[in-house]
Structure formats: structure tokens, C-alpha cells
Simulated assay, not measured.
Amino acid sequence: MAGINEKPDPPISAYQFKTNLFDIEKSTEEGKKRTFTGVAYSGEVIQSHYYWGDVIFDLDTIKMKTPLGALIDHDPGRRAGVVRSTTNDHQNGLKVAGDLLSNKNGQEVAQDSDEGYPWEMSVYIVPGSIEVFEKGEVVVNGRTLKGPVTIFRNGVIREVSFCALGADDNTSAVAASHTPKQFNKQEDTDVTELEQLKADNQKLTTERDNAVTELKQFKETKRTEDIAALETELKTQFSAEDKTAYTAMDDSTFAFAAKQLRQFSVGGQQTPSTTQSNQTNPVLAHLFTHQANSGQAGAGQAQGSTLDHAFNQFAAAQK
């Protein structure tokens, strides 16, 4: 039974198909253009394509206008030749013939071929319509096929390319000739492994982000507890502004600030004769006492200088 393919828009690589090797004529005369021939499509079913499954091009409706560009690896910036003529029948498939350009790309193809390099043809075809036969039989290119099979109708070949063997092992193309299934199974395996690697990478990224969030929450909770413990120890209540400042400190700065506050509180408990307003922070009361008595001589003066120095250290740490 036939149906219209409802897959999402495929990547460009799904329309690029490897075919057979190019036959590049050996150089015979000085200045004569080098020619090439090849089978752009054999007419057989392309088995186990990574995107389409089993797929076949309808040779009766296929279109290929000449002259047609011949590129290297489907790169428009690497023009290497021109297809001048084509032949098309069910028995021999779609054959092409053309000549190489005299530019560096054409010379590269010719020179590598002369040294024995097996350039492989790849075609870029854009189908006019795509039919999917899930069940039953259908005749295409004189061959009776059983579903499921995908049929490209009214396909237009936009260009052919000289490709290095193995250049498309990322499944950007598969052989558009009668190719054993094992080759395409390996491509399917590569695609599956790539998808698995992407999934594993996403999982690791999520786990890392969750761990960072948990660590941040733990540190915030720990700092809140440390501030509350410091208030209890010093028998004071920090303002909301002070708590915000202490929360924003890194661990070393907060530890230093807490140490200084403890030192300021030592000996700074108020006596009845020196009791100040309840609004005065008892942590700083001792500093105020020594600043008020800074004119006295002896040990008190030395002690006041020491505390002033400690307070300056604390203030510098806050900055």
C-alpha cells in the first residue's frame, strides 16, 4: 500500500548517495581535456539506508540536465568537472560522461587518479515526491519489489561529486548501487552509537548541574546556620543588612570576620556604671569604651591601640 512519507524534514545528507567508482581517462595528448565516465545510479534498491530504509529511484521519471557540475565532496567551492552527457535505461542504469576542469581541483582529481587513487562518485538527488509502500508489491525500474520500500519519483540530480573512499563514513551517503546490507548495517550501528553518546553526555551534564545546585544550597544553609550560631555566641542580633553581607562573603573572609567579632566581644561586656543604650551593639561596646578613654595613659592606652588596629583589619576585610 502506497503512502506519502510524513517524516520530518531530512538533512541534506539524506539526499546524497554514493555510487560506483569513476573511470577517469588516462592522459593521451598534451592540452587535451581529461574525461571521466561513471554510473550515477544503477537502478537497484539501495538497502538499509540510515534514513530511508530500502529506497529506489524511479529511472523513468528521473531528471538530469547537462551540462551539470561535478564537485569534490559536494562542496560548491571545489568545482572539478562538468557532466556533458547521460544515458538512462533499466538494464544499465543512469550513466554519465564528462570532462575535468583545468583548475587545481580538476588537476587534483586527475593527478590522484593517475597515481591509482579510486575516486568514488556520489550524487545529490532531490525527489519530486516520495512514496512509501509498507506492504504488497510494486514494479519500479523493471523490477518487482516487496514492501516496505521507499520510492523517489521525479528525482532531479543537482550535482555529482568526486568523493574519497571512506569520506562519508559519518553516514552522509550510502552506496546507490547493489550493495551488501552489511555495509549499511554498520552505518546504522554508527548512528545508534552516536545517539547513545549524545544521550550519555546529556545525562552527565544534567548530573553535574544538579550537583552544583545541591552544593550551592548546602553552602547557603551552612552559612545561615553559622550566622545564627555567631549571634547566639555573641548574644546579639545582626541586622538584615549585616546578614546579607555575611552571606555574600567567601569562606575565608567570613571566618576572619567571625574571629574579629569574637575578639571584640572579649572584655566588652558592659557593667552597670557603663551601660549604654539597648540599641548599642554589645559586640562593639568595648571599642567605644576604649575610644572614649583613648586619652588615658598606660596599659589602657596600649590596649586601645591594639583594638583599633584589629578593628581596622576587620573593616579592610569587609571591603
Rank of each mutant, 00 (worst) to 15 (best):
M1A: 04
M1F: 05
A2E: 14
G3M: 03
I4T: 03
K7F: 09
P11Y: 03
I12D: 13
S13Q: 11
A14R: 05
Y15Q: 07
Q16R: 05
F17V: 07
L21K: 02
D23V: 08
E29H: 10
G31M: 12
K33V: 09
T35P: 12
G38F: 10
V39L: 13
Y41K: 02
G43T: 01
E44S: 02
V45P: 00
V45Y: 04
W52Y: 00
G53I: 12
D54Q: 12
V55M: 09
F57R: 03
F57I: 09
D58I: 11
D58V: 05
L59K: 00
T66L: 06
A70H: 06
L71Y: 12
I72K: 12
D75I: 02
P76T: 11
P76D: 13
R78P: 13
R78N: 09
R84S: 09
R84P: 08
T87G: 00
N88A: 03
D89G: 08
H90D: 05
K95I: 10
D99A: 00
L101T: 08
S102I: 04
S102F: 15
G106I: 00
V109D: 07
A110C: 01
Q111Y: 10
D112Y: 11
D114Y: 10
E115T: 10
Y117F: 14
W119R: 12
E120P: 12
Y124W: 06
V126H: 02
S129H: 03
F133I: 07
G136E: 15
V140W: 13
N141D: 12
N141I: 07
N141S: 12
G142P: 15
R143H: 15
T144G: 13
G147L: 05
V149A: 07
T150M: 07
I157F: 07
S161N: 11
F162L: 05
C163D: 13
A164T: 08
L165S: 12
N170F: 15
V174S: 10
A175K: 01
K181Q: 13
N184W: 01
N184E: 09
N184L: 06
K185V: 05
E187G: 06
E187D: 15
T189D: 15
T189S: 00
T192P: 12
T192I: 04
A199Q: 11
N201G: 00
Q202W: 12
Q202A: 07
K203N: 01
K203V: 08
T206M: 10
E207N: 06
R208N: 10
K216Q: 09
Q217N: 11
Q217S: 05
T224H: 00
T224R: 01
E225S: 04
E225V: 03
E225G: 05
D226H: 04
A228D: 15
T232I: 07
E233F: 10
F238Q: 01
A240K: 11
D250R: 07
S252Y: 14
F256K: 04
F256A: 05
A257W: 09
Q260P: 06
R262G: 02
R262Y: 00
Q263A: 00
T271I: 02
S273H: 01
N278D: 14
L284V: 08
H290I: 10
Q291F: 15
A292M: 00
A292C: 06
S294F: 11
A297D: 14
A299R: 08
Q301M: 14
L307E: 14
H309Y: 12
F311V: 07
F314M: 14
F314I: 01
